[in-house]
């Protein structure tokens, strides 16, 4: 184990978290990420037994999850494995693919609604120009939020995960809080 202490994307020793309005916002700092891309003409592997989804798709998997990000390209995630060399493990599981470590490329924020789907819907309409019908439970897509490129994953109706540039984590967090404030103002 390295004797260096990591910082979260928001720049603290512990991940950011806030319960505001009708939503709980949490920074997820222990998720490992890596992209997997097919070689030209390659066929989709099943790393860790994972079926790689098609466009807009997200597969939570067991050992790792995946969502589609481009033709022949997926983001593979593994909860709780940020401190490991997950990309190396993934490469072993999919040796014929290009694998790139992405764990620290992204700030990951999870938004949970204890009151069901509606507050998540309200949040979405304040952060992304996306028809809410596109992002049903089980879907993932890439879009813009507050002038930043983000991935959105909707694990469930009452849950949303946002991946944004790690370097812009503070700006993304601010935009989320402002959006929540906007929802509160509307009651």
């Amino acid at each position: 184990m390295p004797d260096l202490a990591p910082l979260s994307a928001l720049g603290a020793e512990t991940p950011g978290s806030i319960h505001t309005g009708r939503l709980v916002l949490r920074e997820i700092s222990d998720i490992a990420l890596a992209t997997l891309a097919l070689r030209n003409g390659g066929t989709a592997p099943m790393p860790f037994g994972l079926v790689l989804p098609g466009p807009l798709g997200w597969n939570p998997g067991n050992l790792a999850g995946a969502f589609w990000i481009a033709p022949g390209q997926w983001m593979i995630s593994a909860d709780g494995r940020a401190h490991t060399d997950f990309a190396c493990d993934l490469k072993s599981a999919a040796p014929d693919c290009a694998v790139t470590e992405q764990t620290d490329g992204w700030a990951v924020f999870e938004i949970v609604s204890p009151e069901g789907a509606a507050p998540i819907g309200n949040l979405l309409e304040r952060i992304v120009n996306l028809d809410p019908r596109i992002l049903n439970a089980g879907a993932a897509t890439r879009t813009h939020m507050a002038h930043m490129s983000v991935f959105l994953v909707r694990p469930a109706d009452d849950r949303l995960t946002i991946l944004g540039m790690r370097s812009a984590a503070a700006s993304l967090w601010h935009a989320l809080l402002e959006a929540v404030r906007g929802i509160s103002a509307h009651g």
Partner: peptide, 14 residues
């Protein structure tokens, strides 16, 4: 036709 895969990793590495 080239077998090339690209990913930006600017943020991933300090």
């Amino acid at each position: 036709e080239f077998d090339v895969q690209l990913v930006s990793v600017t943020d991933a590495w300090a």
